[in-house]
């Protein structure tokens, strides 16, 4: 019992560390208080995100685990976060491109095109991975979580796409379907930072937004001569 209390006290002391300011009103970890004016903006942001009760961090998420991990940045996310906006420097660009290139995994049987009709639905679907209120249930949708492609891209002209990314209309018609262009397209979908460091585009393959099979369907939607993208 006493041992437990001592452990808790030690834990609390470690958590507040150098940032103690007991007469301030901001919560620290384990019930302590912190002086927010003694922190750098980066330290305070991390504190507010993880230690101040600002987010629901313990909610289960679709990929397994809890929502906290969604806010923990990986190396690429850290490198590509530029406070105040603007482009990253040349060194960071090279670093990020290498990081992305090393990250790409290819389908075992080679890059193949799937069913453009399924790809069309996946490209259109903005469903999947949302948590908090109205949490997405991946098992209740026919093709699982969507690719969210139309959020940012105009693809076929029968549906309205966004313009954060480039227009992809006639994608296959303009480019053909050589092994080289299939490989390039797969890589851009899997991890676009390999070509466009710190792009806004999600890492659809590397972050498991879509499975290998789902990506093959989206690629069919881009390349198949019968796909509305190429009509």
């Amino acid at each position: 019992m006493l041992n437990n209390i001592l452990k808790k006290a030690a834990l609390a002391a470690t958590c507040v560390g150098l940032l103690v300011g007991f007469n301030t009103a901001y919560a620290g970890g384990h019930g302590g208080k912190v002086d927010i004016t003694k922190m750098t903006p980066e330290q305070l942001a991390e504190h507010l995100i993880f230690n101040s009760g600002g987010f629901k961090l313990e909610q289960k998420v679709q990929e397994g685990g809890v929502s906290r991990q969604r806010l923990e940045q990986d190396d690429l996310q850290k490198a590509c976060s530029v406070t105040g906006g603007g482009a990253v420097d040349a060194n960071t660009s090279v670093k990020v491109m290498n990081m992305a290139r090393n990250d790409i995994k290819y389908p075992k049987g080679g890059i193949k095109l799937g069913d453009w009709k399924i790809g069309r639905e996946l490209a259109w679907s903005g469903y999947g991975y949302r948590v908090g209120h109205r949490t997405d249930n991946h098992s209740t949708t026919k093709y699982g979580p969507g690719g969210n492609c139309y959020n940012c891209h105009q693809m076929a002209t029968d549906r309205t796409g966004g313009n954060i990314g480039p227009v992809l209309t006639n994608y296959g018609k303009l480019r053909g379907s050589s092994d080289a262009i299939l490989k390039y397209t797969y890589e851009v979908i899997y991890n676009p930072h390999a070509y466009f460091p710190c792009t806004n585009m999600p890492r659809i393959g590397a972050q498991n937004v879509l499975t290998e099979e789902q990506i093959s369907h989206v690629m069919a939607y881009l390349f198949d001569p019968e796909s509305p993208v190429n009509k």
Partner: peptide, 15 residues
């Protein structure tokens, strides 16, 4: 200033 850091902070499955 912390809000500014948070605004540009990339995270989550979509980055």
């Amino acid at each position: 200033d912390a809000g500014e850091v948070m605004f540009y902070r990339r995270a989550g499955p979509m980055d």
